[in-house]
Design a protein around this nucleic acid. Structure first.
Lengths: 214, 214
DNA sequence: TAACTTAATGACTTGCAAGTCATTAAGTTA
DNA sequence: TAACTTAATGACTTGCAAGTCATTAAGTTA
């Protein structure tokens, strides 16, 4: 006997968020190029044709994932920075911890690795991500460092470059968990890693008395 | 009139190294999955069929690139570490600088990014790279840190985790140049970046008098 | 110089995934 | 309940790249 297909439900409102969630999961697991839109559709419980009803193509789907999931956290961090009154290292800690909590500990961490992995092959996505996430994130950390130097809490270093040095271990932590992590036998847990990074940074950035003012 | 094809030269000895060089260039530019073996062959001046005469498949070709180009630098660094007699921070500097010179400044830097990018989709390559490059590299840096802690030059921290924190900025530097780099307007040059990293590290690792011994 | 060995070729097969579009049917309107 | 609108489907088209293999011809041996 021929199996009767399940009835097709029409749920125009629920589809976009369900598709984005499925897309996030597969993009993070497989990467951008290797994710099949048919699989995204299946994971969201619809057919491939339906996906194309809501998103023009793979790139549009990806941009929507970033826009909905990551951009809001930057806005939140910008608000935190604007109203901060304490010392600058504390501000740095707050910003990095919030990023770690909202992005690093979620599936969105995988987007960081995806962008690093596929930027070269998808320059338009790279430009979108740079404008909407990276440049804003760098400005945020750069602001905290500049503030600390101006208030005499940190020693004077080139801000733009120090930003990159400060965020590199955080980025690597996010990236690692979605790449070579598989091989490692679970050494270095994130908590310890972040604590050591902040420890080294706190002592490393501190202005020592014997050093000359700039 | 039909163009006469150029004469086909038989050069069994020269082919492997020419194919490896072409493969390195394209792997680094496009990534592993997106590199077409036909393009590798063309860049090396042979046909696709010829490539398969020398390397069983794409994975074998990649392993050969790593084996010939990267593994020797690790052996060299192990020799440098074994014969070092000065202070431990100096050893750290020597190892990181040598890695930067021999790998970071060459096309091989792109292999770091490639592995991070494609480890998940090619677990066998990931395992090969982990065993032959990453674990040896970590052991090298870990040894220098352990040496410094035992001699009382560095404060006591979890070695395995500190290794990751110390190498993260170097890895990010290599990775960045082959991914999002395209978007950036040339801020933060490698020289300044490495100097700031080593500056922060030198002061960050230093054992301060007031701190308790472990 | 004829017979032979093997490096090199490239047309071909296979399989996969993006994107399309004619068809179906869920839910609404008259 | 018949006519209509549009959400949803999935077979199909298109294009691409890995890997194969029968054929060609460079260079060697007898």
């Amino acid at each position: 006997m021929p199996a009767t297909p399940p009835p097709r439900k029409r749920r125009k409102e629920a589809r976009p968020s369900e598709l984005l969630e499925a897309a996030l999961g597969l993009f993070v697991e497989k990467g951008f190029a290797a994710t099949r839109l048919e699989d995204v559709a299946a994971l969201a419980g619809v057919s491939k044709g339906t996906l194309y009803l809501y998103y023009e193509n793979k790139e549009a789907l990806f941009k929507a994932v970033v826009q909905e999931g990551i951009v809001p956290v930057l806005a939140e961090n910008e608000a935190l920075a604007a109203k901060h009154v304490g010392c600058s290292f504390e501000l740095l800690e707050i910003l990095l911890n919030n990023w770690w909590t909202k992005i690093g500990q979620t599936a969105y961490a995988g987007i960081t690795k995806l962008m690093v992995a596929e930027a070269r092959n998808f320059p338009e996505l790279a430009a979108f991500y740079y404008d909407n996430v990276i440049s804003r994130g760098r400005a945020l950390i750069g602001g905290a460092l500049k503030r600390g130097m101006e208030r005499g809490e940190f020693r004077s270093l080139d801000v733009e470059t120090t930003v990159d040095v400060v965020i590199a271990p955080i980025l690597m932590l996010l990236i690692w968990r979605f790449s070579m992590n598989c091989c490692q036998n679970g050494e270095s847990d994130p908590q310890t890693y972040l604590r050591i990074h902040m420890d080294l940074l706190k002592q490393g950035l501190r202005k020592l008395e014997k050093e000359s003012q700039v």
